[in-house]
């Protein structure tokens, strides 16, 4: 039996070679594996283009970070384009001066763990197996300048998947499980207990409530319990009109869930409550009814009529 000799990871050798090959005055750009997957891929493509134009190369670090070494012109242009497109500027290291900080940074970044890729079958099994206690999440919301809870959202726990399509699929499946548990007295105990007296915000699958509608209250109250549908439900206007009419008749107000705080600026939906991530700046056309998701809660969310997660 032979004991393998400790190996220097391949990326260290490659980095040493590419640094040695780069003429003085070159630039290293370190693109951390941050932001959504699409933005990361876009950054990689721009770095690779700069490598071709700037006589350098792109090195993938084990944790998913990318390192470009190239002539300064193309490298700088790529860094600027990445900052403009994704809003997340990468780090620049002028060479050879900044070689030591660069190596330290690469070394630290290399420890990050890559995110696993899901197959459909694996995701389906995972979502079906998740215990309800972990699959459901109850979030409390305060209103305006207040910090005591006035509303509660019962929805699926986000899986934090890289792929928006798979995340949407998981959401659909979990919503259906939640709904089934909510209407089954035997299973209801597995869900986080709802607080009495707080307005209910309930995540629903894209098609709304299947079959017999779950009664929420008297119809026509815009501040009644809120049925939360994904924005994608709008893509089939006829089906959307049908499912929302049924929900309204059963006493639900309608909310739409978008992954971009700019979405309310694109669509005009006067009777809809928008549910969006709490971005640094308010949306361009602030909707009449708005629920901001996530913490920290930016100052603009603490305004009358806006629900946010800033619960003390």
């Amino acid at each position: 039996m032979t004991i393998p000799a400790p190996q220097i990871p391949a990326w260290r050798n490659t980095l040493a070679t590419s640094l040695a090959a780069l003429p003085a005055g070159g630039l290293a750009i370190l693109q951390p594996a941050q932001g959504p997957r699409a933005a990361r891929r876009l950054a990689r493509a721009l770095l690779e283009e700069a490598a071709v134009l700037g006589g350098g190369q792109v090195l993938g670090l084990p944790g998913g970070d990318l390192l470009l070494t190239a002539a300064p012109g193309p490298a700088q242009r790529a860094a600027r384009a990445i900052a403009d497109l994704t809003g997340l500027p990468p780090d620049s290291f002028p060479l050879p001066e900044a070689e030591q900080p660069l190596l330290a940074r690469a070394e630290a970044a290399a420890l990050a763990t890559p995110t696993p890729a899901w197959t459909l079958a694996a995701l389906e099994a995972h979502v079906a197996r998740m215990p309800l206690e972990g699959a459901a999440r109850l979030t409390l919301f305060a209103s305006g300048t207040g910090s005591h809870p006035v509303a509660q959202r019962l929805g699926p726990a986000p899986l934090g998947l890289d792929d928006p399509e798979l995340e949407a699929l998981a959401r659909e499946a979990l919503c259906r499980r939640l709904l089934a548990a909510l209407t089954d007295p035997g299973m209801r105990g597995q869900l986080p207990p709802l607080r009495p007296g707080l307005r209910l915000i309930l995540d629903l699958p894209q098609g709304g409530l299947p079959g017999g509608a779950l009664r929420a209250g008297p119809p026509g109250d815009p501040d009644g319990p809120l049925a939360l549908l994904p924005l994608a439900a709008l893509a089939t206007p006829a089906a959307f009109a049908q499912s929302t009419a049924a929900l309204r008749a059963a006493g639900w107000a309608i909310g739409l869930l978008a992954n971009d705080a700019a979405a309310p600026a694109e669509l005009e939906l006067p009777e809809i409550t928008w549910v969006i991530p709490a971005a640094a700046a308010p949306p361009r056309h602030p909707p009449a009814r708005l629920i901001a998701l996530g913490r920290p809660v930016p100052a603009w969310c603490r305004a009358p009529g806006i629900l946010h997660e800033g619960v003390a």
Binding site: P36, L85, A168, A232, A235
Partner: peptide, 13 residues
């Protein structure tokens, strides 16, 4: 258009 609605952040990018 359905893709724009499903992923407005991706579409903005």
């Amino acid at each position: 258009a359905a893709d724009q609605l499903a992923d407005p952040a991706g579409f903005a990018l």
